[in-house]
Design a binder for these strands. Structure first.
Length: 446
RNA sequence: UCCUCAGUAGCUCAAUGGUAGAGCAUUCGGCUGUUAACCGAAGGGUUGUAGGUUCGAGUCCUACCUGAGGAGCCA
């Protein structure tokens, strides 16, 4: 086995990534990667090499190369790391359309056969795969999903950055519940102090929006709910924009525009990944503004006709969301929920004060709520009253009340769960694949 | 927290209460266009744990552990 120094890994042959191989047809190049799979047929072998940008099928014919090289490659083990050199050639028989005729290779680390790479090319169960998540990420499907996630995150930032929003991130340690609606993770914070992991940056966003006009925060959030479903993680990423001098209608317009932008960017830049995932592209192409807008009242009526047992005043269950979404080929917006099922800070509907000026965006194809938001209370007196009604400690919210004492204005915002959006865009049946290392009720490793 | 289902070779799964099996992976052999390559051979087991029923338990019973799906809660 060769011991490598950085200088050993350099050679005179230009190193390229597999993604750019098409531009180097006819040239001799070097790839730096890992052995993804190896097919042998006597005196001809087909090593498939991946480098993170793609997978390249290589060809090595015994009669045409040095015998030691042929034997080295022929006996190489799955996921061994290697540098491989050769000339690129267009080849319709190869997956990817190009092939590399091997002229040389250097093994960087050979996976020993006594302890072979655990994830074989056959099927595995979820427990095994997520126990080996650090290796699972190398597989084609997981690679495709995380590249879509990257595209989504980049598109989110591009959208807000080019529409006048300033990124102002919010703290992860928070002194109290933001909304008082969910269970939080408690953390020891030096002497005797308890803090919680944030469930939302929203209250802080309201402060930053009063300073910058339009802001967003984008980071991990935490829910200690013991939810055990395909739609839940205990740690997930959420983007939360907040706008001063804005209303419920602005929330609908911006969230609709954002979702359409995400869909178009993924269709534009991640077509290959969607193909790997066997995503029905037509379903994404149908996602165009305007999204249907219905009221909570209408939604309850529709659900009851469809056989749901929901009562007016109750919140939607997972099956209710699926029932609602099946009538549309694009996300549907449901607004004006009963205040009693919403957080304390929602502005009441002036025409029907028992309703909150909030909206949920429910993704198509049964993927559930991906956006929730609305208009915030800006009257100091009403906010104080709501805090009392929800038994929230006033002193912890003094700074929040200040936002109504010193130039309070109508303002609005929303939150979008990144993993749910990615699961929908990729057409996945479980949210756990949308994040590199999922944290769930019964999984904190690796 | 509740309901349902599952735990057998490294992995995915078989096995009427009666000798523990296959495919993949690994090793050896064969094959010049493979597409989860294929063909032949070999090695590989405390059947999740602890009890119980039985002449005999992977299989039946009890408890526990672990996981999956769903409910509630939520994005």
């Amino acid at each position: 086995m060769t011991v490598w120094r950085t200088s050993d890994l350099m050679s005179a042959i230009p190193r390229i990534t597999i993604a750019e191989a098409g531009r180097h047809a006819g040239e001799t190049v070097e790839l730096a990667g890992w052995l993804y799979n190896l097919r042998k047929s006597g005196k001809i072998i087909f090593p498939q090499v991946r480098d993170g940008s793609g997978i390249m099928q290589c060809v090595c014919v015994k009669a045409q190369v040095d015998e030691a090289l042929f034997e080295t490659l022929k006996n190489l083990t799955q996921e061994s790391s290697l540098l491989i050199r050769g000339s690129i050639r267009a080849e319709p028989r190869a997956p990817g359309g190009y092939e590399l005729d091997v002229t040389g290779a250097e093994v960087v680390q050979r996976v020993p056969e006594e302890r072979p790479y655990p994830i074989t090319p056959k099927e595995h169960g979820t427990e095994f795969l997520f126990d080996h998540r650090h290796l699972h990420l190398r597989s084609r499907r997981q690679h495709a999903i995380l590249r879509v996630r990257h595209e989504v995150i980049k598109a989110i930032r591009d959208y807000f950055d080019s529409n006048g929003f300033t990124l102002v991130d919010c703290p992860i340690f928070t002194p109290a519940a933001c909304e008082g609606t969910t269970t939080l993770f408690e953390v020891d914070y030096f002497e005797d102090e308890k803090v919680f992991l944030t469930q939302s940056g929203q209250l802080y966003n309201e402060a930053t929006a009063m300073a910058f006009g339009k802001t967003y925060c984008f980071g991990p959030t935490f829910r200690a709910e013991k939810s055990k479903t395909r739609r839940h993680l205990t740690e997930f990423w959420m983007v939360e924009p907040e706008m001063a001098y804005a209303t419920l209608d602005d929330v609908k317009r911006v969230s609709e525009e954002l979702i359409c932008f995400l869909v178009s960017r993924v269709l534009e830049n991640r077509q290959a990944e969607l193909t790997v995932l066997e995503r029905d592209i037509a379903k994404l192409e149908a996602v165009k503004a305007p999204f249907p807008r219905i009221s909570y009242d209408e939604a309850v009526e529709t659900l009851r006709k469809k056989g749901s047992e929901i009562e007016w005043g109750g919140d939607f269950g997972g099956t209710d969301e699926t029932l609602l979404s099946e009538d549309y080929d694009r996300p549907v917006m449901v607004d004006r929920f009963p205040s009693q099922i919403k957080a304390f800070y929602f502005e009441p509907d002036p025409e029907r004060p028992e309703l909150a000026l909030g909206v949920d965006v429910i993704a198509s194809e049964g993927y559930g709520e991906i956006v929730g938001g609305g208009q915030r209370i800006y009257s100091l007196e009403l906010l104080e009253q709501r805090l009392r009604e929800h038994n929230l400690p006033a002193e912890a919210f003094e700074w929040y009340l200040d936002l109504r004492r010193f130039g309070g204005v109508p303002h609005a915002g929303f939150g979008m769960g990144v993993e749910r959006a990615v699961a929908w865009l990729c057409g996945l049946d479980h949210i756990r694949e949308t994040i590199a290392f999922p944290r769930m009720l019964y999984r904190t490793r690796p």
